[in-house]
Design a protein around this nucleic acid. Structure first.
Lengths: 323, 323
DNA sequence: CGACGCTGATACCTGTCGTGTATCACAGCG
DNA sequence: CGCTGTGATACACGACAGGTATCAGCGTCG
């Protein structure tokens, strides 16, 4: 029943990702035979086959697929332990807040200003990332809190507090006929032949099939819209996307987007709790037609307000034990 | 930046718990000098002092306290990885559902019956535990889903779905004057001189100060009530506590208790998703005055119903990706 | 006040096991 | 049928975790 070592999990993940012992060993900086042995030993210890070694290739078994996911979170947890402990020892340790570049800009500005005004507030360092990266950064301990957006981001495993609710707009090339409209529906936007929806890479780096262009950063996508190659539907407060060549048209039946502040569970330091409290108190949980903090400007019009005040929240609040 | 090994974390936790290198080494089954070296090396790698070695004792530093918590969850994650992978490889793998012994009995019965009736349902194995143990079992991968109770249990870090809401009752010795009452308030129950509230052990095993008896299992507490030594306030549907020598009296202003089904985030197997769906569909989310599933019998009277339908929920639902 | 006990730290040796080099066995392919 | 490329095997080496013996400080107690 001997416990697994992180080294074994790293080795396993390398092989699982490369599906090739030689390349995996190369990536790990070791030779291939020891890697083969390590995997074999891991399989023996778990009592489970992790790979099907067919003569011309390696494939994950069902159990292997389970371990891919489990090993990932376990290694994240170990890395987070090291990182958080290091930071706990350093004399000055600002809170790291991560958010998608360009999203909820006014809300963030207001949060930072308000927080900075509180007596004895911990300095906050802002880390901007690309779409979907917040969860990983939080899990690895590279960040303490994140601004995330439901239903886009995966909030599973975090404690969250709703901050504001807003509608979505379609971002179109100004030159396109649809850009003249006052409002749109999802159905109208879904299938515009000359503006196919862009494709983001999957976790493994491959792209789904489809007519749209392949992108992996916001800037690429924004430029493709400006070039008249695609369109997108985003929360009204997202500023980074909105170029002069763009037009934003409210999409009436698009699901509302909730901006939430999220933090790893059971990690309430006093500093995080204070920041969360400040965020929650920014305004009475998003006034029905205020959009998010600040004016949710678009290039064409203000949005029809978002109804449905924030509701959900994971576990216990951010108050509680102080340490 | 070399990664930590789980061995180092286990060593650290042992020392942190014993606060004594000799005893910790003993517990780990190794000699003391290697342990000292390992800790020293760990401190060096992290660049942080973890212990203050005063001449007559070892104490955790701030960074050490952070690592205690982090190492715990990291080791849980590693153990869960091993356990879940093993189970994924075994031919027959029933779902393990854990709940507090005696809690929400009727709801559980109904859930199991309904689930068993579904076509192709995975067999469910029920694991009964003591108060507050569910979270750990879920984190360590010993269980797949849990029935938990808000606000008592710590739901942080899990996905949850509300199942039902109910009021609380005071469990009193039948012989006590208060047992004759129709209903009570928290204030009345809080400070009964001859029925001091029992004390549960803290995480470190020590007991808080106070007049009440020390307990660490439900049965002990139930018997102490029967003996006229203490009282307690619990959800109306908790059956294990209610002996013939007990009387249950509704506490009108006690906070409502929500029974939830919880599972580790990002672990939606099809089987878990199906069970959660069944649970959520058991009835239209707790009818205002139905109490929990089945009749919430007490020895004296039915409870005044619990209002406030379930609201919160953590991350994404249990549907989604099937694997 | 000095001998003793107890703490964790140090010194040094040993055995294990993770690693590298060399090689093999087997499939696909031209 | 040899070539290429895969992962598995054999074996020797070296790093490092672990054990034993001992030391150094600080209580305590006769």
């Amino acid at each position: 029943m001997a416990d697994l070592e992180t080294r074994e999990l790293r080795y396993f993940l390398a092989v699982a990702e490369e599906l090739h012992f030689g390349r995996a060993a190369d990536r790990l900086g070791i030779a291939q035979p020891p890697l083969s042995r390590a995997i074999r030993q891991l399989e023996h210890r778990l009592g489970v086959r992790l790979f099907d070694r067919d003569r011309r290739g390696v494939a994950l078994t069902d159990a292997g697929r389970v371990l891919v996911r489990e090993a990932g979170t376990a290694l994240d947890a170990v890395a987070a332990a090291a990182r958080r402990t290091r930071r706990a020892g350093s004399p000055t340790r600002p809170l790291v807040l991560v958010t998608k570049a360009g999203a909820s800009h006014e809300l963030l500005q207001e949060l930072l200003d308000t927080h900075a005004g509180e007596p004895g507030a911990t300095p906050v360092e802002v880390l901007l990332c690309e779409v979907g990266e917040q969860a990983g950064l939080l899990r690895e301990g590279r960040a303490d809190v994140a601004l995330m957006h439901r239903p886009f981001d995966d909030l599973a495993g975090f404690d969250t507090e709703d901050l504001c609710v807003e509608g979505q707009v379609a971002i179109l090339p100004a030159s396109h006929p649809l850009a003249a409209r006052d409002q749109l529906t999802l159905a109208e936007v879904q299938d515009v032949p000359d503006l196919p929806i862009a494709r983001w890479p999957r976790l493994d780096g491959s792209y789904p099939d489809g007519p749209g262009p392949e992108v992996h950063t916001q800037s690429q996508l924004a430029q493709l819209v400006a070039l008249g190659k695609t369109l997108l539907v985003i929360p009204a407060s997202s500023r980074a996307w909105q170029w002069p060549e763009h037009v934003a048209v409210p999409v009436t039946d698009a699901p509302d987007v909730t901006t939430v502040i999220a933090w790893p569970p059971r990690r309430h330091t006093a500093a995080v709790a204070a920041l969360v409290r400040t965020a929650a108190g920014l305004r009475p949980h998003s006034h029905p037609d205020a959009g998010c903090a600040g004016s949710a400007r678009t290039h064409r019009r203000r949005l029809p307000g978002a109804a449905r005040a924030g509701a959900a929240r994971a576990g216990g609040g951010p108050d509680g034990g102080t340490d």
